[in-house]
Design a binder for these strands. Structure first.
Lengths: 129, 129
DNA sequence: GATATACTTGCATGATGACGCAATCACGCA
DNA sequence: TGCGTGATTGCGTCATCATGCAAGTATATC
């Protein structure tokens, strides 16, 4: 039988730092940084709600910023894996990678809960458990 | 019968900007900005993998930055709703809100897929659909 | 009350990044 | 080939932010 001191997951932060977990691969600051700018998030939400592939000029109409700014933001969102791009003549069509994005978020959610010593749904995060 | 032109969700970005969706509430740039810094993410992952409530000094041991920096980062992560705090004497205990965080991510995933005209799992995000 | 421990806050500095303008590139069309 | 539209890139500027040091606050112990 397991003693109380040998509780699952109860280690020091220093030990935890060396321990590899699925969480590490998914918590890449670079990917989240893309979602950390208001203008960028607005463009992304706009495109997501739009529900189809759109050109840069078209997307720019939903935001009061220069076209060059929109172009840069979209490019960054693509590099972050949130958008995909397709050229159609001289028009650059951006579209949301709905499936990949949602899947990545769920995988992160799973990885987080895998770290929780009480397992999934431990009640509002109060995990002194 | 529905004609091809009356496809679900196929609107312009400008129209999409005015349309309210569950996605809007969940795509708050401020919350993501908290995850956009390498040091902050490292501290968070450290605490998550640790699996228990930890003091600031203890957490600081897993990162080569000043204690004041750690204190500020943890405070910011708390304001972002990712951590919770509890004072125990002179020690400030931070712990990860596993449940809330995972739940928020899944809700965002759902909101994203709700925007996808083809519904959930449309295959790698290629949604010209 | 004095001292030590645990943490927070003020301040200066350096780095990163968002923005607009202008120039340039890419492609279609006459 | 020249022109117009759509998009990207270079550059300067301004704001934000991460960091460390130093000073201050809070709590436990002697």
């Amino acid at each position: 039988m397991m003693t109380q001191s040998r509780k699952r997951g109860a280690i020091s932060p220093k030990q935890a730092a060396r321990r590899r977990a699925p969480l590490d691969a998914m918590l890449d600051a670079g990917r989240f940084k893309a979602l950390g700018d208001p203008t960028r998030v607005r463009l992304l939400a706009c495109l997501a709600k739009c529900g189809r592939a759109c050109g840069v000029t078209e997307i720019a109409e939903c935001c009061a910023v220069d076209l060059s700014v929109v172009s840069r933001h979209l490019s960054l969102l693509r590099r972050a894996g949130l958008l995909e791009v397709e050229k159609q003549g001289r028009i650059v069509l951006y579209s949301v990678r709905y499936g990949d994005w949602a899947e990545a978020l769920r995988a992160l959610a799973d990885a987080i809960e895998a770290c929780c010593p009480a397992g999934a749904r431990c009640g509002g995060g109060r995990c002194g458990c």
